[in-house]
Simulated assay, not measured.
Amino acid sequence: MLRSPLLAVPHGFTTRTGGVSPPPFDTLNLGLSTADDPKNVLENRRRVLALFGDPPQAGLRQVHGATVHAVEAAGEWEGDGLLTHTPGLLLRVSVADCYPILLHEPVRGVVGALHAGWRGVVQGILPRALALAQARYGADPAQVRVAVGPGIGGCCYQVGPEVVEAFEQAGLPFYRPDSEPGRFRLDLEAAIRAQALQAGVRAAHYWALGACTYTDSRFFSYRRERNTGRMWAVIMLAPT
């Protein structure tokens, strides 16, 4: 379990180790949507949740968009982001190349978890989450701590011209030409950082793990393996 020095609340980014799943899901696969035996996945989930005291959970049916929900009880929502100010409620998102983003605003007592693929970034999932946190809870973006977990890096994220065009239109020119004609390398984490700072997050309150899922064997990578597992990013306010 990896953690950010910025977040003073229970949280973590899982790796692919510490579970019971066999190859190619070895070992801590947390994705029930994979071809792994559900019994293995449930045991892996049990192990992760035990680290947080087996709390109630809020999860997502992720759709690679930018819908963010403010929630105060356990359940599952369709979208790619969750916010809460309820102590003891664990928020989770699932990833395997897309970026997990965890948020904490310590003054108002708000936390968030976001799943950010290229579509979500273009649509502004992080700025939307910050705006909702401010409107719903009074959270000041300047007080929000943003922690970005492992995702596919600009070194390896090859995309086509349609993706580049979308990022150009969004004012996010964080790409470079690839050696393959008509292809590009997209730095999704740089785009996330730019959006965070533009939305009012202080530079000192932004942290990124800086690990590429495609090249780092500690992590599952859908692009690298296709038939592979899923990781979680989780966060909660400590129970009162």
Rank of each mutant, 00 (worst) to 15 (best):
R61Q: 13
F52V: 13
G75M: 06
G53C: 08
D54C: 11
R47A: 11
A66T: 06
K39H: 05
Q62D: 07
H64P: 05
H69Y: 04
P38S: 10
L42F: 00
V41R: 01
P55E: 07
V48A: 03
R46F: 00
N40L: 00
G65A: 00
T34L: 03
V41M: 00
A35S: 13
P56G: 12
D37T: 01
K39L: 06
Q62A: 15
G65M: 05
R47C: 06
V63K: 10
L42M: 11
F52Q: 13
T67F: 00
D37E: 08
L49C: 06
R45W: 02
N44A: 04
T34E: 03
L60P: 04
H64V: 07
A35G: 15
G65S: 04
R47T: 09
Q62S: 15
Q57K: 13
L60V: 10
H69W: 10
K39V: 07
V41C: 01
G59P: 03
A35C: 08
D36G: 05
E43A: 12
R45Y: 01
R46W: 00
V63I: 15
V63C: 09
P56A: 12
A66M: 08
A50S: 15
A50P: 06
H64R: 15
E43N: 04
H64D: 14
Q57R: 15
K39Y: 00
G59E: 12
R61K: 14
F52A: 11
D36W: 02
F52E: 11
D37P: 02
A66D: 10
N44E: 03
V71P: 09
Q62T: 15
P56K: 12
E43Q: 11
A74D: 08
V41Q: 00
G53S: 08
P56W: 11
E43T: 13
N40V: 01
R45H: 04
G53K: 11
V48Q: 03
L51Y: 01
A70Y: 01
L42I: 10
R47E: 06
V71H: 05
E72S: 15
V41T: 07
A70Q: 04
L49G: 06
A58W: 12
R61W: 13
R61T: 14
L51M: 13
R45L: 11
L42A: 07
G75F: 05
R61A: 14
P55V: 06
F52L: 15
P56Y: 11
V63F: 05
V71W: 04
A35R: 15
E43W: 01
D37C: 02
H64Y: 14
H64A: 15
A35H: 12
L49Q: 07
V68T: 04
T34M: 03
H69F: 06
N40D: 09
T34P: 04
N40K: 04
H64T: 09
A74S: 14
T67A: 08
V71Q: 06
E72V: 11
